[in-house]
């Protein structure tokens, strides 16, 4: 009996030891999300589409997010886009065009601004809301996470994310279609202090093998924790989003 007990105890120690040392990818992903932004917040972004000849086109957006799946983005510039607003509620997305009135449903793969960023990049929810970690590895200075979309409605089927071990901030993300084709690569850089303990990248750059020679850049500013009423994230409120600023 004694040798059997010792064997079972040894097995338990080995198993619990392994569990304690294993990388919990989903918990890590949650930490990455909170390092990037509070769950509910407002922010300003500049989006720049850069063409192969170096010329560029810029857009400025004000964005509000609440909870896991509510987000609205208002175009402040250029004049041709001013007042347009996009709303996301879970998998639902709409575009409101001033003077046209009725918001129309749009899809995550479309782009309201052209260039490499699509609507799901502009209205990005927390990574942990849309993805589960299917594989997690670590190196001396990085975590390597492979994320799988929780539903088929998510824009990218798989993400491969490199996370800095020290800061828990994402460095690069490769986005793949279900076919395994690389759709785009996102690169975060320029760590900045946004106040309230939020230290995160102020720049996101993306390029795509589907748009050779083109790239898009997103610059972040004034990311502040803020709570909003649920009714802000409704079609009827889209003409009034500017009142939140």
């Amino acid at each position: 009996m004694k040798p059997l007990f010792s064997l079972l105890l040894g097995l338990l120690v080995v198993l619990t030891g392994t569990a304690a040392g294993a990388l919990d990818g989903n918990a890590l992903l949650l930490q990455v999300d909170r390092k990037m932004n509070p769950e509910s917040y407002e922010m300003y972004r500049k989006l720049i589409n850069v063409e192969p000849d170096g010329s560029s086109k810029e857009f400025v957006l004000y964005t509000a997010k609440k909870g896991q799946d509510k987000m609205v983005a208002l175009f402040l510039s250029p004049a041709s886009e001013q007042g347009r607003a996009t709303l996301r509620l879970g998998d639902n997305m709409w575009l409101y065009i001033p003077n046209v009135g009725k918001p129309i449903r749009i899809t995550s793969l479309q782009s309201v601004i052209g260039g490499v960023f699509n609507n799901s990049d502009i209205l990005r929810l927390d990574y942990s809301t849309e993805y589960s970690v299917s594989k997690a590895e670590e190196t001396a200075d990085r975590y390597l996470l492979q994320l799988k979309a929780k539903t088929p409605t998510v824009a990218y089927d798989t993400l491969k994310m490199e996370v800095d071990r020290e800061t828990l901030l994402p460095l690069t993300i490769e986005a793949y279609a279900a076919s395994g084709m690389l759709i785009k690569t996102l690169r975060y850089s320029d760590i900045d202090d946004f106040g309230d303990g939020l230290l995160r990248p102020a720049r996101l750059e993306t390029d795509s093998p589907l748009y050779r020679g083109y790239k898009s850049v997103m610059l972040f500013a004034k990311i502040h924790k803020r709570d909003f009423a649920d009714e802000v994230f409704t079609l009827n409120y889209l003409p009034k989003v500017d009142e939140l600023r």
Binding site: Y44, K46, I48, V50, D53, G54, S55, S56, E58, V60, Y62, L76, S77, A79, Q82, G83, V217, L219, A221, K222, D242, R245
Partner: peptide, 25 residues
């Protein structure tokens, strides 16, 4: 014929976009 080329030195002065009591476009 094409727009003027721009170098990759982007900046973002967010105060330019602060809210005013009026909009005109």
């Amino acid at each position: 014929t094409g727009p003027a080329a721009a170098a990759d030195t982007f900046s973002f002065d967010v105060e330019e976009f602060s809210r005013k009591p009026y909009d005109f476009n």
